[in-house]
Design a protein around this nucleic acid. Structure first.
Lengths: 218, 218
DNA sequence: GGCATAGTTTTCGTATACGATTTCGTACCT
DNA sequence: AGGTACGAAATCGTATACGAAAACTATGCC
């Protein structure tokens, strides 16, 4: 990842801050002080400010006038809304992507899913989560509508930013999840109609959300 | 709309430029020169620049490094993608909103729809389009998920920006549209399940898109 | 006459600077 | 002691300025 820097400073600042949020270096609630970030990066505040506003537009940070920016919060309600939105968008993306998924994609996804199964044996939640993202990427990445694809990516980023504090691995749900993945693959392989695939994909995510919620109640 | 100005200059600039785009004063392809807009508004370029980047994030303008910003284009493919995305989001928003829609809302929507019928008689496409937006607003505005609601609004704004150059009133389709509106209202009134409403709302928009497309081919 | 090239102009990108607003700490008053 | 008011520090918001990149124009060469 140490390739020669490219793009404008505002772009670099955007990527740098976003990476820190998604990786969890800046946790929700973290105060983003323009001058400090600018100094860290060796830039002036102007491009940093622009980067922060972009992240605000994507929902990763919250900006308050004359006060400043903080990494967006972990409010359970917010989490629910984000998941619901993502389930809808991702469901549609997967359905639109399905007819364009080839045998090679299926094989790749299946391999990933099998590795997820291994992660269950060895209890490796971190890798499991990463693989889960990889798996779904294969399913929706061929979606021909760039807007929908973009929204899916934003949703995943947003979830990633919440991960470290909100995410709790639920083994029972994870096991079901792997089975549902296999079902999804079979639906796509057999050329099921778009509506069936969309419902299955949406339902899959809704079930994950339910698992988190019922766990959170305890 | 001449209320006392509020908010930061960057906010004002954002609203001013957005209004000009949505109203059609800046048509697609229009070159947005920072210095010029800044002068018009009496601001410096910094807040204007921020406003433009925000509009870029929403898809209303296209920004190219070291070149500048232009109002986003009218590419038919782009139009299709936007409509498809909106149909999915708005369908979901309407389904989620439906259980919260009260008798007063229904009455209001029905009144709007009747007025749309009048517009067909007197051939008033401009008002028809406005009323169409009002009608759908009633249906999705109670959606409790703010993210979804936000996406719907963005989609409508984007369509509005394309309106003046792409939009062509299709009388036959408009007539069907009014009937479909009535169907939608009945579904909501009778408490149809979410899936039925979502499909109907999505289908309604898809039909409009088809009408435009088949007309555009001629 | 057309194309390449150098110079000019336009416009963007970012740094710096300063005024405005908020926040926080401290002292004073009740 | 608690609360309020005032002042200092921190931080944001925007203006101005200048360097850099691209677009345009004109000129000269083939």
């Amino acid at each position: 990842m140490t390739e020669t820097v490219t793009g404008s400073k505002s772009q670099q600042a955007y990527e740098a801050v976003k990476a820190r949020i998604v990786e969890g270096a800046y946790t929700p609630g973290y105060r983003l002080v323009l001058a400090k970030i600018a100094e860290d990066l060796g830039f002036s505040v102007v491009p940093v400010r622009e980067a922060i506003r972009r992240l605000e537009a994507e929902g990763l940070v919250t900006f308050e006038r004359n006060v400043g920016a903080t990494v967006s919060g972990i409010d359970p309600t917010e989490y629910l809304y984000t998941m619901q939105t993502l389930s809808i968008i991702e469901g549609a993306a997967t359905a639109l992507s399905a007819p364009l998924i080839g045998a090679a994609d299926i094989a790749r996804a299946r391999a990933v899913n099998e590795e997820m199964r291994d992660c269950l044996e060895h209890f490796d939640p971190v890798r499991f989560t990463q693989l889960n993202q990889d798996f779904h990427s294969v399913l929706f990445e061929r979606c021909p509508n760039p807007h929908i694809l973009d929204l899916v990516h934003r949703g995943w980023n947003r979830l990633a930013s919440l991960r470290s504090s909100t995410f709790r691995f639920v083994p029972g749900r994870a096991r079901d999840s792997v089975e549902e993945h296999e079902n999804l693959l079979r639906l796509i392989e057999t050329g099921a109609d778009a509506d069936t695939i969309e419902k299955a994909a949406r339902q899959h995510r809704a079930a994950t959300l339910d698992a988190y919620l019922s766990q959170a109640k305890q």
